[in-house]
Design a protein around this nucleic acid. Structure first.
Length: 171
DNA sequence: TCTCCGATTCACT
DNA sequence: GTGAATCGGAGAA
């Protein structure tokens, strides 16, 4: 079953942990479809989270994080890689889940490259988009939690939070 | 305008 | 283990 926007209208920590094990589905322009089991996610939680882009407040870039649940937040990192995020919680609560790994693609940059995801998808809604969506096929997920990656600049308090969720069966 | 630097990856040593 | 690639957002000037 396809995940509806109600699934994303909850706290980012619940959504990020439950997304592990779900199927990320991508339909390409030529009609071909691939489904990838989500293996790793990270949660970014509001303006108080110094690792979250929204910690700087509402800007043109972070505006999509303040919009309705299920919105897709795409941004370019290191001038080379697109990051794929899904917004959670109601309007004006800036939270998002970063998809870090799915199927055989281990790493957020590799994932978006394989899925041909670019900034065109920014602000789309994953519960209402014919090109990308998420399905629940009943897979029972088992996860472990780890600190988030690449956010030392946010300070020890935030960098040490166990807000990365990884499939226990990964590898 | 100008400067700094990042939610990464890969090639090298 | 170290460093380069590469560019747009954010803040300073």
């Amino acid at each position: 079953m396809k995940l509806e926007s109600a699934f994303f209208d909850r706290d980012v920590l619940a959504v990020a942990s439950e997304l592990v094990g779900k199927l990320l589905v991508r339909k390409f322009d030529d009609g071909s479809v691939i489904k990838l089991r989500i293996k790793e996610t990270e949660a970014y939680r509001g303006e108080e989270d110094k690792a979250c882009h929204a910690s700087k407040g509402k800007t043109p870039r972070t505006e999509v994080m303040y919009s309705h649940p299920g919105s897709i937040y795409i941004y370019l990192i290191y001038g080379m890689y697109w990051m794929l995020n899904i917004v959670t919680e109601k309007e004006n609560i800036p939270q998002a889940v970063l998809l870090r790994a799915a199927g055989e693609y281990d790493g957020p940059g590799k994932l978006t490259k394989a899925l041909k995801i670019t900034k065109e998808f920014n602000n789309f809604n994953i519960s209402n988009c014919p090109q990308i969506w998420i399905e629940d096929d009943g897979y029972i997920h088992r996860i472990k939690t780890l600190p988030r990656v690449g956010i030392d600049y946010a300070g020890q308090e935030w960098a040490s939070k166990q807000w990365r969720f990884v499939d226990k069966n990964k590898n």
